[in-house]
Simulated scan of single mutants.
Amino acid sequence: MKKLLIPFVLILALVISACGNQTSEKTKNESDKKTDPKTITYLSENGPVKVPANPQRVVVLSSFAGNVMSLGVNVVGVDSWSKMNPRFDNKLKNAQEVTDENLEKIIELNPDLIIGLSNIKNVDKLKEIAPTVTFTYGKVDYLTQHLEIGKLLNKEKEAKTWVDDFKQRAQSAGEKIKAKIGEDTTVSVIENYNKQLYVFGDNWGRGTEILYQEMKLKMPDKVKEMALKDGYYALSSEVLPEYAGDYLIISKYNDQDNSFQTTETFKEIPAVKNKHVFEANANEFYFNDPLTLDYQLEFFKEHFLGR
């Protein structure tokens, strides 16, 4: 019996040892799979990027400052257009104006994340300063863009909550506006900048996403033909009546030459004669981030519905 017992004990010891090794290896593999709790991996359009899980000092080089601020994340450097936006004054009062060429200034700001459009310069050098993520404008729709920024900032849940609520509010207001002005009533959005008039499609800021995508208001056929694909179309004041809808939204810079509004051509546009022209401050009407979209929605509710 003793001779049989010794091999059995040896076999049992080998089995226990093997199980212990497997458990140890499994624990090690699971540990290796765990992400650094201080970082997350964001799958950008250019591949995976390791970014802070809780960014504290973000530099935004184009377009997305309002998205970042709406999610409660601190912005320390920002593009000139965002810095000029009076609606961003309080949130950006301590942020520095920077460009993609101000590398030394960006280094001084000690950012932990840099965000910009895909056409910014010096991307490789910016990546040496901090994790850098770029987005191609219009590659995804404006609400999906906010969700992507939510993922990047590790705040996807908060971003989705806002998107769902905004769509409901905008679509509800659209139904009321159509009931008041008529299903087939057309709306145009124009802007004058650097002595050039522009009319906009449905995805170029200035409230176009709300009017056309969420509220489903109609744009004039001429606008649809010329501006829908590219997002905007440059035109002369002489042909503006061809692009003017029953309602005309003017995104207006007060420091630009707006003399087109004093011409007889402009005054004879039906929307002008019917007092269906709504003017907005272009500096605060420019973007399509949550802070701006909320303001634009209230602007349209006030002007179309009188509240």
Results as ranks from 00 to 15, higher is better:
T144C: 10
S259F: 07
H146K: 06
L126A: 05
Q213M: 15
G174F: 05
S118P: 05
D141A: 14
Q171F: 10
I129C: 02
P37Y: 09
E183V: 06
L147Q: 12
T185V: 12
K139D: 03
V15I: 14
T35G: 09
K216A: 13
E108C: 01
G205H: 07
F266E: 13
W204Q: 13
Y212M: 14
Q256M: 02
A159C: 11
G245L: 07
K180R: 05
Q56D: 11
K93N: 01
K252W: 09
K50V: 15
S31Y: 02
V140A: 11
E156F: 07
A282G: 13
K139L: 11
K216G: 11
K155Q: 14
W204S: 09
N281F: 15
N102R: 07
V123C: 01
S24A: 04
G66Q: 00
G66W: 00
I190D: 02
V223N: 09
L43Q: 12
N85V: 09
N67S: 11
Q296K: 06
G201K: 02
N85H: 08
D289Q: 12
I115Y: 09
P48E: 12
V140E: 15
P7Q: 02
A244V: 02
V73S: 12
S172R: 01
S62E: 04
K26V: 00
G20S: 06
N90V: 06
D100A: 12
Q22Y: 08
N283E: 14
A53S: 14
V51W: 05
D36Q: 05
S24E: 00
K151D: 02
F304N: 01
S82Q: 08
E214V: 11
I11H: 05
N29E: 00
M215V: 04
I190R: 01
T262H: 05
T27E: 08
Y137S: 12
L5V: 13
P111V: 03
